[in-house]
Design a protein around this nucleic acid. Structure first.
Lengths: 187, 187
DNA sequence: GTAACTATTTATCATATGATAAATTCAATC
DNA sequence: GATTGAATTTATCATATGATAAATAGTTAC
């Protein structure tokens, strides 16, 4: 749990009482490569923190597997559209490597907010930065070519390329696996 | 200000003291059709609430005007990437119709959060739902065709079509104006 | 109400990406 | 370490969308 608390401190430092309360509703879990952390159709009641490994969020469009996002060490993952609305999610979370995650019970977390305003602030800030990166992603999908998107991903997160199968990267970029391969080949 | 407070109540009801504090840092402004509410290069220190009218957020890519989003009555607008990072924004906000907005001073708002946790919760919820819609927009840009995107926009917000010039809708959908015209014509 | 300007449509041609299939490389399992 | 299956690349053809230009429709300002 120490890494978890250390990472949180870089976002927004919270009191030791709040730390204790947060730890009390959090549990560490391990997932083998290739297994689902959460399944499609399940209502999201957990916010995860990736301690080690990588996960992806994916869904199906016309029976085709589409990767919505990746999350590496020291990042939070949840299926916001289900977490914040209470509806079943159309997405799944899968471990791409053997992954250790810290699972935070969202129901109990939201209840903590009443007596721990610093926790609410922490999670507000987490959502804020997720929001900012999501908006940037829209810009990239709106008018950049597939090649531009690939190159800026490569520049921004070279580790993605090293640790993630290309087929997942392709759908993340909004193109087919074959197209991505062609773009890489073109040099 | 009444509509403003009434709308807020539908998101998360706040105490009357918090209402007062919020009103104290908010001001009503009017913008003529076609004028910029905020310019490119300006650091965003204001959160706007659209009372009447429509605005769009836009930026330039290779000297081409791209509309990132529209906001109608009873919606909040801000340039998050600047507001939350303190950096100058690469985007502008423009009134598409004569528009009345309520401008909330973000610096003073964030300071209020310490003594008004209900205000912080309100704005956390506002960001949460913005985040959810942004993620849905990514899905639509990731693997839907231009025609699918146009049709679902038409279905989801028929008023967009009525009140927004097509050239703005085109770039919002990630296509050129000419392509959008073709898609509409194809019928 | 006309002139000037802007928005939208239509047409033509070019190109990036999709779809499909096959070949190759890589990885996992016994 | 050979076999099997999965991931990636390569090739071919089809198509949606881009780029450009010109025509038409609609709006604004005097």
């Amino acid at each position: 749990m120490l890494e978890f608390l250390r990472h949180i401190e870089t976002i927004y430092p919270i009191s030791s009482k709040s730390e204790e309360a947060l730890v009390a509703i959090s549990k560490e879990h391990e997932y083998k490569k290739g297994t689902n952390v959460q399944d499609i159709g399940h209502t999201c009641k957990t916010i995860y923190f990736v301690k080690s490994g990588v996960v992806r969020v994916y869904y199906y469009k016309d029976a085709i597997d589409i990767t919505e996002s990746f999350e590496f060490e020291n990042a939070f993952v949840a299926r916001a559209e289900s977490l914040f609305t209470g509806k079943p999610s159309q997405k799944a979370i899968e471990a791409i490597e053997d992954t250790t995650m810290i699972a935070i019970d969202s129901y109990r977390l939201f209840n903590l907010f009443d007596n721990h305003p610093d926790l609410e602030r922490l999670f507000r800030k987490i959502i804020e930065s997720s929001y900012v990166s999501t908006v940037q992603r829209i810009e990239s999908l709106q008018f950049n070519t597939a090649e531009e998107r690939y190159k800026s991903l490569l520049k921004a997160s070279p580790n993605v390329l090293k640790r993630i199968p290309l087929k997942y990267i392709a759908s993340y970029l909004g193109i087919t696996q074959v197209s991505l391969s062609r773009i890489r080949g073109a040099k």
